[in-house]
Amino acid sequence: MPGPSDALEPSTGRKHVAVAGRLFVAPALIAIAIFFLVPVVAALGLSLTDFDIYALADRRNLRFVGWANYGTLLTDPLFWTALRNTAIFVIAAAPLSIAVSLGAALLVDAKLARFRGLFRTALFLPVVTTLIAAAVVWRYLYHPRVGLLNRVLAWFGVAPIDWLGDPTWALPAIILMAVWKNFGFNMVIFVAGLQSIPPRLYEAASIDGAGAWQGFRHVTLPMLAPTFAFVAVMTMIGHFQLFAEPYVMTQGGPANSTLSVVLLTYLEGFRWWNLGYAAAISFVLFAVILVLTVVATRLRALGGGLDAPEAARGGRA
């Protein structure tokens, strides 16, 4: 491929670099604009129409309905169920997964630990497994009669639980599976965070008479605060997008107890072809994620300023 190849004067050189820069970003930005940003804006437009299977067949059946889809949403029990389930999933699974990640990171990073690399790999493995395959496997682990979980629980005298068939247990079962699948990701981030804490902070703390717990409370936690903030926001956003687990394991049941917002969007949009209504649902989800992200970022800015002890902050050169 021939390129502009003359050595140039400094001023024309800068201009030529600028031209090259624009040309270099263009393909990626055009792709992102056409196939991501335009559809997002179009989704807002779509959510203001009654686009359904008739409009899919013939665009003349398409009508502009203003905010009517959003009005319908507010009175749609299915939407509220999906939002409630998704909220429970986020509120339970995200902190649980972060706590497990932190625990695993502390163990893997412990000075006394042996074969750290091996353990880290083992704990990380669920992250790279295909979600659909993992969901299929867990579907059988949760089988009421022959599933491994109930068989193991039977040794302890626990009566069989119909994990995925009982509205009380189905969502917790999906939460447990999601924690297993995801915790390794944040564990790796926490390990990197732990390794960036200067050892002299722990030495200083122990000279001041701090025990292991106090060292954790006053050095580790404050030093991990920025990592925490990042991990919390990203984990939350990820968990709002729950879809494949209920799709494979429960199809949203029983009694809609595992119906998530994205699953409802999929069903409304691609199963029942109510694309206008589905677009409204996806926009509400986007708004919720956006608001929470902004709040979390603000809280982090606020908390970062108040919480971190001076010693810890000074240590972060």
Binding site: V38, V40, A42, L46, F240, V262, L275, S282, L285, I289
Partner: peptide, 15 residues
């Protein structure tokens, strides 16, 4: 980056 991929999915499908 904060926009979830699913938001644009329906119009992208139509496109």
């Amino acid at each position: 980056l904060v926009i979830p991929a699913q938001v644009g999915m329906l119009p992208l499908f139509l496109m």
